[in-house]
Amino acid sequence: MTRRAALVALTLPVLPRVGLGAVLLALAVLAGVIVGETALPLRLVGDVLAVKLWGAERALDPIDAGILWSYRLPRTLVAAACGAGLALSGVVLQALVRNALADPYLLGVSAGAGAGAVSVALLGIGGGAIGLSAGAFGGATAAFVLVALLARAAGGGPAQLVLAGIAGSQLFNALTSFLIAKSANAEQARGLMFWLLGNLSGVRWPDVTMALPVVGAGFLVCLAHVRPLDAFSFGSGAAAALGIAVRRVQLVLIAAVTLMTATLVSLVGSIGFVGLVIPHAVRLLVGPRHARLVPASALAGAIFLIAADIASRVLIPGQVVPIGVVTALVGAPGFALILIRNRRRA
């Protein structure tokens, strides 16, 4: 079989599914663009896309068009990237550390981001020139490096990584609490909590150009490692026996996951639940093999977070509910249903 024939054999059977996924994602993005705090006519979507993408001449209300193109579209795209990235991170970490409770924030990234953002806001680091995002990214990276060093010093196995992650998270969460208790008033604490719980309202096109490439690259890295991830099913020893370069694969995947999570946390705060539960839900639907689990989780995470973002905008009229609250409120019962259904079927 030639390479070309192999490629055709590889792609042909999955094409319909890829197509279906693309259609579902496109519909979700469309819904994310149409539904929001204020009503926009569906016709406007076509008009704005025609003007922006093909340079067509249409008379558009600048505010309506701006809301659609500059606020909602980037916001929805980042929500999709964020959902996909968090779900992928969950899949990868659950496989690597063989722990069902592993989530993207396992390695201290979220706690570090929180401490970094709070340091910037409360200690005045950067004198207002550095935004919370930059502080969050710095904190996330610092926390991860600390956790990785600690895990390495403790022996470097998956159990050590989990424990080091817990220790690191506790340390950075305590730092955050200390800073807030020391110097914040109620209004600031509210502002920071609002931000830490996840917030997509500040998303603009520059965030899209950060989030999409990072998550896209992370997705490709995960996709290229579906077999190694499968091989970890029976532990890293078994993976090595199956020809997996365990250290290198762990390093590449954890680096990819950390970069994705740190970027996403710094852009939109730490949105919980997605990375923990989407992989489990998708596993129940498509099985444990990563060739299906990786793309299906990315798709499900993307659609789920777009839906959660829509809900966060319309749940209480005139007010935005933190998206992290919505993901848990909507996601937990949904996951319960999947669990129950799966038990009946088994």
């Binding site: 063989r98 069902a100 099913s233 532990g235 020893g237 078994a238 596993r283 099985g287 444990p288 093999r289």
Partner: peptide
């Protein structure tokens, strides 16, 4: 003792 928690067939 190689075991897995995954729902592999």
């Amino acid at each position: 003792f190689a075991d897995t928690g995954e729902a592999l067939s």
